[in-house]
């Protein structure tokens, strides 16, 4: 939440002059341009691997993650690729089976938060006046109140804080960021000519919102969604690590919970806590990369596609300020430099 989406906010106010993000410019932008972005591609590939694990997890895991065996706290070996824990359970199986829990919670929380954010943000931006003031105040309040402690006290007081419950709690507390960014962008869209034209032809408000405004917010909504999923995954893993969610449900945080409570650190059992953390990092990185892809789609200045250090040197270009390599359709890489010397 704090990282990938920053530039979108930056891009939003400047978007007044040029056509907004996602506006169809027929013939100029190749289709599926998003998929040509190497960062986004890598992200999607990693995410796809995890998605396959989430679906097939219980079938492809070598052991039952709860199955106790006599190999107590074994280092990685042929039989147990990632070793075993203090009761001889296979850690690789726990990781694979736990993937589903992590992804489902991330997805549900992301959808819930994005839906709330879109409703609040677009309404606030479009309606204006007192309604806007109220909704903005509410979302600012939710932005300022630290989310993790709020999630912790809600989840800790629920009688059973299972996966979906936690996902909904995260969704209900985490929508404000998206709402704020969407409101800013809606405000700038509201007075554009095409919206005025739709209004002049007598379209109903809900149709203007659905058919004219929302499609132009797609990129921002997507970025907000991905950001929320990252945050949801981190929060859920944290909750499991603290021991708030039931330990019978496997996710990566549960593994870390067992590791921390059974002195994995002091016993030097690195195979117990390192893989789970790397999985979280890898998933988070994949989502961040996807967000970079979206960012670069929205804000061309951030693109440096095809202009790596070596290319620059070969062409005798010294990277300096005020220099924006932009990739145009048709030509591989054309530099538009504002102060080439």
């Amino acid at each position: 939440m704090a990282t990938g989406t920053t530039s979108i906010e930056v891009a939003a106010p400047t978007g007044v002059d040029d056509p907004g993000p996602g506006v169809a410019r027929p013939g100029r932008r190749p289709r599926l341009m998003f998929l040509r972005n190497p960062k986004a591609l890598v992200g999607i590939a990693i995410l796809a691997v995890f998605a396959v694990l989430a679906v097939l997890g219980p079938w492809i895991a070598p052991y039952d993650p709860n199955q106790v065996s006599r190999d107590l706290l074994q280092a990685p070996s042929g039989a147990h690729w990632l070793g075993t824990d203090h009761t001889g359970r296979d850690i690789l199986s726990q990781l694979i089976v736990g993937t589903r829990g992590v992804l489902v919670v991330g997805l549900v929380a992301g959808v819930a938060a994005t839906a709330l954010g879109v409703v609040v943000g677009v309404t606030a931006g479009f309606v204006g006046g007192a309604g806007d003031e109220t909704l903005s105040a509410v979302s600012n309040v939710f932005l300022v109140i630290p989310q993790l402690p709020l999630i912790i006290i809600i989840a800790a007081q629920l009688p059973s804080a299972g996966g979906i419950t936690v996902a909904l709690v995260i969704g209900v507390t985490g929508w404000a960021w998206g709402a704020r960014v969407l409101r800013a962008q809606t405000l700038s869209l509201r007075r554009r000519d095409f919206v005025e034209a739709a209004r002049a032809t007598g379209e109903r408000t809900w149709r203007i919102v659905l058919a004219e405004v929302l499609p132009n917010l797609t990129a921002i909504i997507a970025a907000g969604f991905v950001g929320t999923v990252i945050f949801a995954v981190l929060s859920q893993v944290t909750l499991a690590f603290i021991g708030i969610t039931p330990v019978s449900e496997w996710n990566w945080g549960t593994i870390l919970f067992w590791a921390q409570n059974n002195l994995a650190l002091q016993r030097g059992a690195w195979w117990w806590f390192v893989p789970a953390g790397l999985c979280i990092a890898l998933l988070g990185m994949a989502l961040t990369l996807i967000n970079f892809g979206i960012d670069e789609l929205v804000n061309p200045r951030l693109r440096s596609t095809g202009m790596h250090a070596r290319t620059l040197r070969r062409r005798g270009i010294r990277p300096r300020v005020g220099f924006t390599p932009v990739v145009r359709a048709g030509r591989p890489a054309v530099e538009t430099s504002e102060e080439e010397r």
């Binding site: 990252i230 390192v274 953390g277 990092a281 961040t288």
Partner: peptide, 21 residues
Amino acid sequence: TFFSAVPYFWLGLIAIAVFAV
């Protein structure tokens, strides 16, 4: 990017394992 995707507490665990233990 990697560090922004890692949960704080896990880095803490690694730091303890490496620098303390």
